[in-house]
């Protein structure tokens, strides 16, 4: 690794500014009481008004049960986790078949699996809503989880198919020749080798699920609040006040946490330990 040239440094700086820059005004806004044009910084800060105000302001509101932020975070993580688990259970075997077997109509099936990504979410949402109301699934966790599987499965299938394709049969055959049972092969050879791909796929579908707004909004009917729907109802007017900014910042937390966890996991578990011995 050589040192970075000045050009590379500037380039990195610009990229970092592009990604992190928008957070700066959000952070400032979340501590503001009154921040009006053309002031560069808030004219009145939240802490100055904190004692005088009869109601919780800014972070006091965001972190209180009134804002519903804890409920929304819990719902988002719970739904994201369950969706990811179901998605994996469906996609791991399906991807194996798609990667290793040949059968009639395979390319048509592969194309069909991507269709949910092409059909507009609104169309899916409205149609599902009509069906779910009839079935009593509207406004339930089950309904939302089913809906979230629609956009996550196509991504997961694609990622896992290429993971399976990258995994030759030789390792599994080798283990079998040496006397391993099917279960041992799966547990000690196949899964550890698939692990980096599975983690990447799981991370991706978790992030997709936690960011789905429209389907959750339509099918949750306001009863089930997740971080994206909470944020929408707070800032849909195009005006971000202190509580809106605070909520927007919290909405980014699950994604960041997930990235950090998976980063660690990919580095230590899969490659650090090697294949279980």
């Amino acid at each position: 690794m050589g040192r970075l040239s000045p050009f590379q440094k500037i380039y990195l700086f610009l990229i970092a500014g592009f990604i992190l820059g928008p957070f700066l005004p959000l952070i400032i806004q979340s501590f503001a009481f009154r921040w009006a044009w053309p002031d560069l910084l808030p004219g009145t800060w939240w802490l100055e008004q904190r004692e005088k105000s009869p109601i919780p302001l800014a972070w006091d509101y965001v972190l209180s049960p009134y804002s519903r932020i804890w409920e929304a975070t819990l719902n988002t993580v719970l739904i994201g986790g369950i969706v990811t688990a179901i998605c994996l259970a469906i996609c791991l075997p399906a991807a194996k078949v798609l990667a290793r077997d040949r059968f009639r109509g395979k390319s048509l099936l592969e194309f069909g699996l991507s269709l949910p990504l092409i059909v507009p979410e609104t169309a899916i949402g409205i149609a599902l809503l009509m069906m779910f109301i009839r079935l009593g699934l509207a406004g339930t966790y089950t309904g939302i989880i089913i809906a979230h599987l629609i956009p996550t499965i196509p991504y997961m299938i694609r990622m896992l198919t290429s993971v399976w394709q990258g995994l030759g049969r030789e390792f599994e055959e080798q283990a079998m020749i040496l006397g391993a049972s099917r279960w041992q092969v799966l547990r000690l050879v196949t899964l550890p080798m698939l692990m980096p791909g599975v983690v990447a796929g799981a991370l991706f579908s978790f992030l997709v699920s936690t960011n789905i707004f429209l389907l959750t909004f339509l099918l949750g009917q306001g009863k089930i609040v997740t971080l994206p729907t909470l944020l929408f109802s707070k800032i849909s007017g195009g005006q971000i006040d202190a509580t809106g900014a605070g909520i927007a910042l919290i909405v980014t937390v699950p994604g960041i946490a997930m990235l950090l966890i998976s980063e660690r996991f990919l580095r230590e578990e899969a490659f650090g330990q090697g294949f279980g011995n």
Binding site: F33, A36, T44, P54, L57, D241
Partner: peptide
């Protein structure tokens, strides 16, 4: 005025 959304 009490929530800071109006000018003083």
């Amino acid at each position: 005025l009490s929530t800071g959304t109006y000018p003083e």
